[in-house]
Amino acid sequence: MKIAFYGSSLVSSYWNGAATYYRGMLKSLAMKGYDITFYEPDVYDRQKHRDIEPPDWCKVVVYEGSIGALRRVAACARDADIVVKASGVGFEDDVLMSQLLENARPDAMKIFWDVDAPATLAELKEAPDHPLRRSLGCFDMVLTYGGGDPVVATYRDLGAKDCVPIYNALDPETHHPVDRQDVFAADLAFLGNRLPDREDRVRQFFFEPTSKVPGRRFVLGGSGWSDKTMTPNVRYIGHVGTEQHNAFNVTPMAVLNISRSSMAETGFSPATRVFEAAGAGACLITDDWRGIDLFLKPGEEILVARDGHDVAELLDGLTREKAEAIGRKALARVLAEHTYAHRAELADRLFRTWKEARKEVAA
Rank of each mutant, 00 (worst) to 15 (best):
T20V: 14
T20I: 12
Y22I: 04
L26D: 10
L26S: 07
S28F: 05
A30P: 08
G33P: 03
T37W: 08
Y39K: 09
Q47E: 15
G68A: 11
L70W: 03
R71Y: 08
R71T: 06
V73G: 10
C76I: 00
V83H: 07
V83Y: 03
E92H: 08
V95W: 02
L96F: 06
S98R: 15
Q99I: 00
E102A: 11
P106I: 01
E123N: 10
K125Y: 04
G137H: 11
D140W: 04
V142H: 03
P150F: 06
V151F: 02
V152K: 08
V152P: 04
A153T: 04
L158V: 06
L170T: 02
L170P: 04
H176M: 04
D179V: 05
Q181I: 02
L191E: 08
G192L: 03
F206E: 10
F207M: 12
V213K: 09
R216V: 00
S226K: 14
S226W: 06
M230Y: 09
T231S: 15
T231Y: 02
T231H: 12
N246D: 09
F248M: 13
N249Q: 07
P252K: 04
A254H: 07
A264Q: 15
A264E: 14
A271T: 14
G279T: 06
A280C: 13
A282D: 04
C283W: 02
T286M: 11
D287N: 15
D288W: 10
W289A: 15
G291W: 06
I292R: 06
E300H: 13
L303S: 08
H309T: 13
L315V: 05
R320P: 06
R320H: 07
E324P: 00
G327I: 05
L331C: 10
V334S: 12
E337M: 02
E337A: 13
T339I: 08
R358G: 13
K359Q: 12
A363D: 05
